[in-house]
Write a protein that binds this DNA or RNA. Sequence first.
DNA 1: AACCTCAATTGAAACGATTCATTGACAATA
DNA 2: TATTGTCAATGAATCGTTTCAATTGAGGTT
Lengths: 332, 332
Amino acid sequence: MSVSLRDVAKAAKVSVGTVSNVLNRPEVVAPETLARVQGTIKDLGFVPNGFARHLRSGNSRTLGLIVPDVANPFFTEVARGVEDAASKRDYAVFLCNSDESATKEDRYINILIEQQVRGVLITPTDVKSDRLDAMRERGIAVTLVDREIKGRKQCSVSVDDIHGGQLGIEYLTGLGHTEIAWVCGPDSIPQVADRGAGVAKAAKFAGATVETIRVSLMNTTQGEEAAKKILALKTIPTAIFCANDLLALGVMRTLRENKLRIPEQVSVLGYDDIEFAASAAVPLSSISQPAYQMGVTAADLLLNECEEAETHEHQQIRFQPQLVERASTGKR
Amino acid sequence: MSVSLRDVAKAAKVSVGTVSNVLNRPEVVAPETLARVQGTIKDLGFVPNGFARHLRSGNSRTLGLIVPDVANPFFTEVARGVEDAASKRDYAVFLCNSDESATKEDRYINILIEQQVRGVLITPTDVKSDRLDAMRERGIAVTLVDREIKGRKQCSVSVDDIHGGQLGIEYLTGLGHTEIAWVCGPDSIPQVADRGAGVAKAAKFAGATVETIRVSLMNTTQGEEAAKKILALKTIPTAIFCANDLLALGVMRTLRENKLRIPEQVSVLGYDDIEFAASAAVPLSSISQPAYQMGVTAADLLLNECEEAETHEHQQIRFQPQLVERASTGKR
DNA sequence: AACCTCAATTGAAACGATTCATTGACAATA
DNA sequence: TATTGTCAATGAATCGTTTCAATTGAGGTT
């Protein structure tokens, strides 16, 4: 069915070793032989069998990237960064969607091990790190994205989420808001927990009241649910801070359906600064994170670890979030 | 470094063949042996080497999905559908981003062949089909997504793009618009060409004038560029039909910056009906396509071809687009 | 003419699984 | 007792590469 290296060797009247050399160390084979074999390869449409190749040589040129939600533009932006950086070094990326589920995450980790990926970039859904250790034991490099686990011997690229949470609250209280809703997912998501911690800290400092509205997933539909909960409160807060932009867009959608004016009656602040934030009904103020840059950086760290394992030093790179002011927030 | 099947065999004091049977045909091995070997596997944390496994058995449990733009929510929605359908059958999906570039597409096709994927789902950037044939010759099933090539012996899942184009124009002319701008990418993108054909046909029938504004990529930034071109026209059309929602969002952003009221002064119609269309500054009217459903259907067709190759019959499944009316369009 | 060098090429072993013909143990049957 | 059958387990061959020690042969030295 498929053309094998042996077939090429036969057709070009050389040994299999020579064909292999043509592919992997062309400099050691005589120019005319090189040309002839390359011609045969093209004629026969030969593509080496990656399985066999890496089975013997022991290392592949593929990476895995496990994100909690591909439908979230923040993560596709990260993925673009990873992909661009990986392509540049001639690596391919296996993009996996854990859907915020530990089970799916485990399944994918297993698949990636089976596929013998060289390294894995992951935004773990959970702090349990034994799965990550399992990979490392197998010689698979692991880099954490948008997440840092303290005291771990591994690379990570993260954003200061505590600071991001603080930043948002400081901004809102600075506008005069003292009753604020914090819309977020479960605390088991580390980003949520950290941002929440920043929120709590800054609110305490500023003397503001924070009502936490917790939903199960961080998408627009759940944002709509959150808004309904807020509308059912005894006193509606004057500002809503959402743990990501998808939630914020959902919240705004429902608020507008209920004829609340943004920002006159309620201010809404998002997190991530996805591309669509700017095009929203009311352009969404948000806490921005350098998604693409994070992807590139993470991939570079990982590939550095893969290719220069001896000299590699683990790094924890931490970006700072930034406030982007648009129309959805205003003075109390 | 890594635990091999041989190590498990040694530890459990059985032969390699038995361990292999434990993994692949547990019913043929005696219960107590089964339990013992499974225990050893767990103890040693053994994960089979996918390369070696599929090298011998000849078929993997991975699929490739090549999309032209991961940052476009339409395609992530398709990807979610593909992934869900594939997971259900215990397949993993390699998600690749061709970025609308034939070179990148080729590169990924090669990588997928190397990785010995079982099948490929692709939205080809171009009509050249020799690359697809190359895969089929290698026994890799190919299913076209959001695209149909006539007379080809292969499965495809598509949407009637000509009809979609018509639908949009009929709707706009029905509202009284006779001067319409059609904002789109290069005609080399088949979806663009087809939608454009539908646009031209319906416009001719209705006696409307269509000005084509062509940009290089179909994202929001290019949408902004397109809007600038439109604003520079001698007479500004009363309606703008965009070949996808990203373009439309960009167009609307720039129009609003220039204080044009939507839909009073200009109507804007998008295509794809992505999730964010509804949350846009002016909720965007759009031509909707069943993205998730397409992904699921395509994956099911592909897996059917992979697993029941003998009885499989190629199918061309075509969905119909639907108009979704929101606030961005109005009477002339 | 004998010897040495060196570049080019060869071919067999190895990677880690699956597959399958073979073997062994034991029970049932003649 | 001899024969047959069944169920488990075995282990060598195999998949398509890479790797590397061994071989070849052309050219240069002595």
